[in-house]
Amino acid sequence: MLDATPRKLVEVRDLKMHFPIYAGILRKRVGEVKAVDGVSFDIFAGETLGLVGESGCGKSTCGRAILRLYDITDGSVKIDGAEIGDTPQGGLRKMRPTMQMVFQDPQASLNPRMTVEAIIGEPLMEHTDLSRDKRRDRVHELMDAVGLNRTFSNRYPHEFSGGQRQRIGIARALALNPKFIVCDEPIAALDVSIQAQVVNLLEDLQEKFDLTYLFISHDLSMVRHIADRVAVMYLGKVVELSPREALYAEPLHPYTKALLSAVPEPDPDMTTEDRVILQGDVPSPSNPPQGCNFCTRCPAVMDICHREDPEFREVQPGRFVACHHYNQTAGDTAASEDNKSIQQGETT
């Protein structure tokens, strides 16, 4: 990663997605849910960026905001060199073919009144001028590609199993030859036995069609399997972004540590004494704590954490983290056990 830097396909800068809260008889605006609050990262062409975090941390909102399925509050999103952060929805429509999404719930995300062929073929009708027959050929091709029997093309979504429905969703996303696909927890609603199939399918397709993925998941082991780099989100912010191996071997942010230590360990001989159990609940995104968002639950919290929001910066080549422990000014004040272990980890 020192030189010959791969091309950046997606550049997200300071992305903010705030949802207003209305209350009272006159529906006055009384506040906002800061679902995504200043997120920045890049996704390189051809890679898979995993985005992990607890439920409600803003992962899915982030994915949708990047594709501009929401009108974002602030920030910039560049996809394939084109700035889409402030493009109106009308203009965005023409750019939709490059960026697609695979949704979490394959049942709900498919129009129940459309046949598979219509679902997959609809974007072709909108964005290409293929003839009817060509369109059908293309649909069949796509069905083959995702491993669906093409004779099922006239069936309705409810006639398929969960895994098959997700394949339909994927085929639908692929229809326009996109470059970038946001996979929003594509396997969360599936049986474990099916999950692997779908993940493998995604990997195969990535190779075949040269795709770039943003893979959103709360399943750390699955992300470890598929992602090249991993970003960890907490309460609307990315707290750590690292290459996969480095992150799993040696998490930097206290939250990442906690997350990883919560992953079930299949080997009973492995020591579990350094497991970090987080106390308390995630604060409300409509009223995040002052200073570092994690300060209310951090086992290694320091005074400064309650005052200042740590900067998200590169602390090692390719590794970004937002924590005062890695700031020059922070190290001298704190001296807890945890802090030491982190310091040790850093120098190893």
Binding site: R93, M101, N111, G169
Partner: peptide, 8 residues
């Protein structure tokens, strides 16, 4: 949302 994502 899917339909919007399709660019309809």
């Amino acid at each position: 949302r899917t339909a919007r994502a399709k660019g309809m």
